[in-house]
Design a protein around this nucleic acid. Sequence first.
DNA 1: GCATGATCATGC
DNA 2: GCATGATCATGC
Length: 482
Amino acid sequence: MNESIYQSREELLEIAKSAIGERIGKYDTRNRLIPGKGKGKIGLVIEEGLFHRKADSSQKPDFDNLGIELKVTGYQWKNNNKKVSAKERLVITMLDYFNDVNKEFRNSNVYHKIAKMLLMLYEHELDKNEADFILTNYFMYEFENISELDKRIIIRDYDNIIQKILDNQAHEISEGDTLYLGACTKGENSGSTVVVNGIEVMRRAFALKQSYMTYLMRSSIFKNWGNKESFIKDLNLLKKNTLEELVYKSFEPFISKSLTEIDSMFNTQVDRNPKQYLKSYVSRMLNVKDKNLESIDEFLKANIQVKTIRLSRIGEIKESMSFPNFDFIQLSEESWEESVTRDMFEVSKFLFVVFDEVNDSKKEYKLRKVLFWNMPTSILDGEVREVWESTKQILNSEIRVSVKNKRFLNNFPSSKNNPVAHVRPHGVNSLDVYELPSTCKIRVMSNDGTKDIEDFINRHVFTKQSFWLNNKYVLRVINNFK
DNA sequence: GCATGATCATGC
DNA sequence: GCATGATCATGC
């Protein structure tokens, strides 16, 4: 049953083409798209309604006789409709902790699926129901036709995931471990687990990261990826080393060197007046143009964020590390497994570039060490989750505020209560606010009248907050590495 | 001195 | 205009 009714690739592409410009709802023959409910039904609808194929969870390609896998995925316009971003990661196939370990990449289920994928894209629009999203593009992704550099990185990613299982570290796998191909959690709640080597681990699936999908869409369809500078200038380097190793190597000559010494190694001085002068040094040491540090091809596709960290003379970090503000209403409603916060920490990979203070007033530092880091799953689903749960609990009951000396003191989780993370205000000023969920009250514990809390209560808003990693935790992370 | 609230600077 | 990374400032 379920044999492909298509005898050629052209035939298949004709069908895809016929749907361009159409609403998803047109193909919803079984009323699967209920407004406001359920995710991930769109692929099913297209498979059934457009291609007349019964959905299954086989690890073989959907159109097995053609070796082609069908994927339907969304994008959004960002930056005032100038650029698209992938809405989500592209889930390829489930990770089989028991059988995948015996398979080389080109024999794997992943390979059989991404060797040839028919990608159908729809525009995800915020104010629309799923049924009203429009299919706008389609294209064939063929693994063997992507750049040699990308191929090597993806194969290495696959090998790394497999190796982690072989090393009995299945429970510590994280999407942030790898660069373009990741192992993302699958399942809507913490009950979605499986026991591997006696340890309960989350079900996971292989997926092309959202950042990589954004690249794919921009470069293949919307033609606005642009010419990004690659960190790896010579493909052959990847034969012997991973991207990470090459990054470390790039910094090696500068370890323990002061900024002034680095200046003289390059025969020109970096202007240390701009706030991000340390980033300029990082660019220099990575051998990329100063302005390109945040848009290195490989870093963008892998969602690698560079953070410069300064240690004081006694080896401490002065400031905690901030992350984007969270939306009070969204956080109060979502589950941990599907939360924006979990996703952000799971997906992000950081490149910490650590400097020791030599003379702060002269802006003189020396390079201490460089390390890639992504948050361990046990910390993410442990301590960070606790902070998140406390925050959610407050947003579903009451924020307790005291007004004192022109400050609003609140009861969000502080760094005293948790070794890893805390919640702090993070906006342009204390009047920079987001709306509160309807369930959340503001309870005034004391008020010296120096600030207008009544306005917050009337408008049902509160100062924007974000999660921060405790400076002591970041220091621990740094010191765990050589 | 540390914890936490407040705000600056920058870039899109 | 706003998000984001970074840092200042105050009071216990």
